[in-house]
Design a protein around this nucleic acid. Structure first.
Lengths: 349, 349
DNA sequence: ATGAAAGCGCTAACAG
DNA sequence: CTGTTAGCGCTTTCAT
């Protein structure tokens, strides 16, 4: 069994040694390009050839090498997604639907974490571009100007998500965080609450919700001669149940008359709910609580949590569609979509 | 400015039209292979050449094409991870640390979702292998026998995680779900509880925790002549706060004397906590609650949740190390690591 | 320390 | 519908 290798076998130590398209083609008795067509564009090939190629694939267990295919065709069928972090449930829905929509179209997802700080963004971007993806989905707006320029220069389809900006790099699927904050303020006022407060993460988008909320409260207060400054706390992102508990304590020490809190995330809201429970504060009677995100558990808390809902699944699906249509040459009509938000009215407020 | 393209420029419509290593090499006045060495193995190149190449890279904004590099060297620097779903916080910690550990070593992560049902597993695997990753990290055991064979045949480094199995495909980082279930039963008995019940997801691993728990309870009951069957409910994975609430209701209808519940996930435990709150059942006095996963919020619930902690970060880091060491030819000593689990003792039980 | 030549496995381009 | 040829951009191999 252990014969000395022939010249041909020994010829080279390169390559993976696996089955290649050429092997399949030989077995099927056709040229490699014909085998390629049988697999990629079966309609361009006779039924007879198609059958023989498929048999050969079956027999050999051939799996196409997409590195080679991507190199030759300049189409990698890879889409990169950049998220601040996969920990924290906010973007999961989007990531999930993005992955699924891409998979259905034969694309795969490459995942990169940028962190909430700006540091690694540029390096990450370079690594990503090196893979020559067919498109890039960004979660949130890219901080670094150099990064934005580099992306623009690359000519790749780019979709920014979860935010709106007047100067998108390319395509955009998101909503206005300022408006969301303002809408919550309106909602609480309409419920008859007058002493509003806010707990927020310190990342860019959370802070814009914060500002939208505070600005609207101030505006309403001026009209109605309500109380002055809006009490508010920021915690380092990512927010947590613990930070919600702790900050509620500080808030009540600072502003004991508070009758409504807008929380920058459902996690913080859960913390607020738990801390209120511990302190014997009735929700919503004494304190109204509004969250953000409408995580899966929000409706099932005690009391059910009123929260801002973003259709993350839709964001992911639209992002995938934008990229795919661009790659496949079908031009997209709208390149900016505001998916909006809704306030899910439940018992906590 | 808009002169007609020269013959050379028009020569071909192939390629990306971007900067290539050859361009950089020309600018630096060296051969392409020398530029390649300057970037990949700088120690093999003179200081003078290194400087010129780096300048050329800087000036052109060159980004290496890793498809081409991967094809030529049979090293893609890509690692694939397969998870049932990224929704659901259980594997997040592992994914996060895996991504980070890989990034540090210059590898990137490709993410695939297999779903909790077996259907898409084989297709996904084929797509993944087509990318010629340098390694594959599986979360949980692969269901399909064909898939296991295909992986084994591929010769790729494979790490299975979050489980133990007597017949690993290759490498393994996990813990025993049976033992975890049994340990919770022991713990609750030691707390003086005697009417134990269990709520569980219906995925493979959750069911093994379920079985470990029930078997141990039965064993203890036989010795102590305790009550008979252990009341238990299964819900479709992924588990949720809602399913926890609902099943607690059904459980109490079926077995009103229950004084301890083991929940298959912290999410379900949160639901149980909330439902108990609504029904005025005191936790832990009347009902002890144990979760699984030690999610970030577990310690901050009211009451703080006793739960089984898995060191997901360690799992991710070890998986990355296993793959990288194998790829880089350094052989790994231990190929199976049981990371164990701990019961985080808090107020809920 | 540097380079020339020859591929990696596949597909675009252009015939027939 | 099928094939030939010539790359894609990089790295291995083997010289110098």
């Amino acid at each position: 069994m252990a014969e000395p290798p022939t010249t041909a076998e020994r010829r080279s130590r390169r390559g993976s040694g696996g089955i290649t398209l050429t092997d399949v083609a030989k077995l099927a008795g056709v040229a490699p390009i014909t085998a390629s067509r049988a697999l990629n564009t079966p309609s361009q090939v006779s039924a007879e050839v198609l059958k023989r190629v498929r048999e050969a694939v079956e027999r050999t267990g051939y799996v196409p090498n997409m590195l080679a295919g991507g190199l030759a065709s300049s189409r990698s069928r890879l889409v990169a997604a950049v998220v601040p972090t996969i920990v924290g449930p906010v973007f999961q829905e989007s990531l999930q639907s993005l992955t699924e929509a891409l998979a259905q179209a034969g694309y795969q997802l490459m995942l990169g974490q940028s962190g909430y700080r700006e540091s690694r963004e540029d390096l990450l971007l370079e690594q990503i571009i090196g893979r020559r993806p067919d498109g890039i989905v960004l979660t949130g707006i890219l901080h670094s100007a150099a990064g934005r320029r580099r992306l623009q220069a690359s000519g790749l389809p780019v979709v920014e998500t979860w935010d709106l900006t007047p100067t998108p790099i390319d395509m955009l699927v998101g909503f206005s965080h300022e408006q969301a904050g303002a809408a919550v303020a309106d909602y609480l006022y309409a419920q008859g609450r007058s002493h509003l407060a806010v707990l927020s993460g310190d990342d860019d988008r959370a802070l814009r919700r914060y500002r939208g909320f505070v600005d609207r409260v101030n505006q309403l207060n001026r009209l109605g001669a309500g109380p002055g400054e809006v009490p508010g706390f920021q915690v380092p992102a990512p927010t947590s149940v613990r930070s919600g508990r702790e900050k509620l304590g500080e808030l009540l020490a600072l502003a004991p008359h508070t009758d409504a809190v807008f929380c920058g995330s459902d996690m913080m809201a859960l913390g607020v709910l738990n801390e209120a429970l511990k302190r014997g504060i009735a929700v919503p009677e004494e304190l109204a609580v509004v969250g953000f995100g409408d995580l899966a558990f929000a409706a099932d808390l005690q009391p059910p949590l009123t929260t801002v809902r973003i259709d993350g699944t839709r964001i992911g699906r639209l992002a995938a569609r934008f990229i795919i249509e661009r790659v496949e040459g079908r031009e997209v009509g709208e390149r900016v979509i505001d998916v909006g938000f809704t306030i899910e009215r439940r018992e906590s407020a």
